[in-house]
C-alpha cells in the first residue's frame, strides 16, 4: 500500500515536472510595471543621467534659487518632451548625449555665472531634448503615462539630491571638486563625440 502511494506520488511528480509553465523570473521579460520600468530606464541610462547630474551640479554651484528652478522645470519639461517624442516619432541623428555632456559639463567646469533666466532655458531645453529622445520610437499606449511619470520621478530625485548636496558644500576645495567633475563630463563628451563620428 505504502509502495503504491509512493509510486503514485513519484508519477505525479514526474508529470508535474514534464509540464512546466514559463517561470517569467527575469524582469526584462515581465517588467516591473510601467512606473518602475520608467524609473529604472532613467537610472540605467548614463546618457540621460549624466547631463541631469551636470545640470544639478551647476544649479547647486549657483545657489538654492537655481536649484529650485531646475527641480521644478527639468522634470516638467522632460515629461512634455517624452510625449512630444512619442507623438512625432522622430529621433535626432546628431549625438545628443555628447552635446549635452559638452555643454553642461563645460558650464560646470567653468563655474559659469549663468543668470536665473539662462538656467530656466537650459533646464527646459535639456528636459525637452532628452525627453523627446526617450519618447521617440516608443509606440503610444496608456501605460506610457506611468512609465514617463516614473522617469521624471527619477529626474526629480537626482536633481533634488545632487543640487542640495552641492548647495551645502562650503569649503572652497569642495567647489573645485565639483568643477573637476564637470571637466570629467566634458572629457567623456569629447570621447563620445569621437565614438559617434567613428560610427558615422
Amino acid at each position: 500500500m505504502k509502495r503504491k502511494s509512493l509510486f503514485v506520488l513519484a508519477t505525479m511528480l514526474v508529470v508535474f515536472f514534464l509540464c512546466p509553465s514559463p517561470a517569467s523570473a527575469h524582469l526584462n521579460s515581465t517588467g516591473m510595471g510601467p512606473m518602475y520600468d520608467g524609473l529604472l530606464h532613467f537610472f540605467l541610462s548614463p546618457e540621460d543621467i549624466v547631463p541631469v547630474v551636470a545640470l544639478a551640479l551647476l544649479a547647486g554651484l549657483r545657489g538654492p534659487e537655481y536649484g529650485r528652478r531646475a527641480l521644478l522645470l527639468l522634470p516638467a519639461s522632460w515629461f512634455v518632451g517624452c510625449f512630444l517624442g512619442t507623438m512625432f516619432q522622430w529621433a535626432a541623428s546628431w549625438p545628443v548625449a555628447a552635446i549635452s555632456f559638452l555643454v553642461f559639463g563645460g558650464l560646470v567646469a567653468a563655474d559659469a555665472q549663468v543668470s536665473l533666466r539662462a538656467m530656466t532655458v537650459l533646464a527646459g531645453l535639456l528636459g525637452l531634448v532628452h525627453g523627446w529622445m526617450n519618447g521617440s520610437g516608443v509606440p503610444w499606449s496608456f501605460s506610457l503615462i506611468g512609465a514617463y511619470a516614473g522617469l521624471v520621478a527619477g529626474v526629480f530625485v537626482v536633481v533634488a539630491l545632487v543640487s542640495a548636496f552641492v548647495i551645502k558644500l562650503r569649503p572652497p576645495w569642495a567647489r573645485i571638486a565639483v568643477r573637476v567633475a564637470g571637466s570629467w563630463i566634458v572629457a567623456t563628451g569629447l570621447l563620445l563625440l569621437g565614438w559617434a563620428a567613428r560610427r558615422g
Binding site: S183, W184, A187, T188, L193, G194, R198
Partner: peptide, 18 residues
C-alpha cells in the same frame, strides 16, 4: 589635472576619427 583629461579626450577623439 582638469586640463589634462579634457585635452587628452580631444586627442582621443582625434585617434577615434583616424
Amino acid at each position: 589635472p582638469v586640463a589634462f583629461p579634457m585635452v587628452m579626450a580631444l586627442g582621443g577623439m582625434m585617434g577615434l576619427l583616424g
